[in-house]
Simulated scan of single mutants.
Amino acid sequence: MSTFTVLAAKEGNEIFRTWRIWVLPAIVMFFAVVGPPLAKITPELLGSVTGSAPGSLALPDATFSDAYGQWIKNLSQIVLFTIIIMYGGVVSSEIRDGTAAFVLSKPISRATFIAAKASIHAMFITVVFALGTLTTWFVTFLTFGTAPSGQLWGAAFLLLIYGLLALSYTMLFSVLIPAAAGAAGTGLGIYALLAVGAAWDPLATFGPSGVPGIAAAIAAGQEHVSPAWPSVTSLVAAAAALGVASLIFNRKEL
């Protein structure tokens, strides 16, 4: 059995034995279940509030696109915040409690340590995103009677890439910053910078900043710029963050 396999098994066991196995899936599934019904009744609720106001306009009935848009909004905001906060201590906590030093006293490279963590947690996030998106599609179909899959899965796949980028740079900060709160806070700061960067067309068209907006447009069935460049640059940035994390961790005193 390779060292990577051993470390991967360790990370998998830690997911199932800690709060991570409950927190992210619970949040994702909550929004997947309540999102479509909420999207359906929102126009009715707003109409009941504003209907008696002079000059008020009748709101159009909700469609499956509204449910998809709500799902993508939740993924790109609350779920990504959760990922960043969850993984702020993914490396620093093991350094602090001595687990990393014990594991690396064996013939295991530090690069393999980082790679195993990134791989298993990326798989975990992927599975949770897929289950949440499948649930959203099913509940949308039950709620609206129609639910084309292409819009939803295309948008969710883009945001999965964005989520993996968030995981990667949060792991980098977890190597750099001893405190989990500090790493998570810095990760949220990078998220905010990416959101601001979306206002600049070159970054929105070619960089990771454009991913949430393009995903929202796909979910709504609207015209959008090609997601190819933002996807590629997000993956490159994620790989670069993990590469830098590995280099820094390799020189870090445990």
Rank of each mutant, 00 (worst) to 15 (best):
K73N: 05
L158C: 05
A155F: 04
R96V: 11
L165N: 12
R110H: 03
S56R: 14
D97I: 05
A67H: 05
Q77N: 15
A156I: 03
G98M: 06
L131F: 08
I78C: 00
L158T: 03
P107E: 13
S76F: 02
D61M: 07
T133E: 09
S65I: 05
A155K: 04
A130R: 00
A155I: 03
Q77I: 14
V79G: 01
L59M: 13
I84R: 01
S105A: 15
T146C: 04
S92T: 06
I83D: 07
V139W: 03
A67I: 07
L80R: 15
V90D: 05
F141D: 12
A53F: 15
L160V: 08
G132S: 10
F81V: 12
A100G: 12
P107Q: 12
G163F: 12
L142T: 06
A130S: 11
A118D: 02
S149F: 12
L165F: 15
I108R: 08
F124Y: 14
F141N: 06
S119G: 03
M86E: 05
Q151Y: 14
M123Q: 07
A111W: 01
A115Y: 02
A156G: 05
A111C: 00
Y87E: 04
A166T: 04
L159P: 04
Y162R: 14
S109L: 03
W153N: 02
K117C: 11
F81A: 11
A100P: 02
S92G: 02
G163P: 01
V139Q: 08
I83V: 15
F81Y: 14
G69P: 05
G132R: 13
T99R: 02
L104H: 08
S119D: 00
A62E: 02
D61E: 10
G69R: 11
A118K: 01
I85D: 04
G55A: 02
L152W: 09
I83Q: 08
A130M: 11
T126P: 02
G55E: 00
S52Q: 13
T146L: 09
G89K: 07
A67N: 02
A62K: 08
S105I: 06
F64Q: 06
Y87P: 00
S149H: 07
M123W: 04
V128E: 09
W153F: 15
G163I: 09
V139N: 09
I95Q: 12
S52C: 00
F144Q: 04
V79H: 05
L57Q: 14
F144N: 05
I72A: 06
T63K: 07
G163W: 08
G69W: 10
G98H: 01
T146I: 13
D66K: 02
L142Y: 00
A122S: 15
S56N: 13
L104N: 10
G55Q: 01
Y162F: 15
A122T: 04
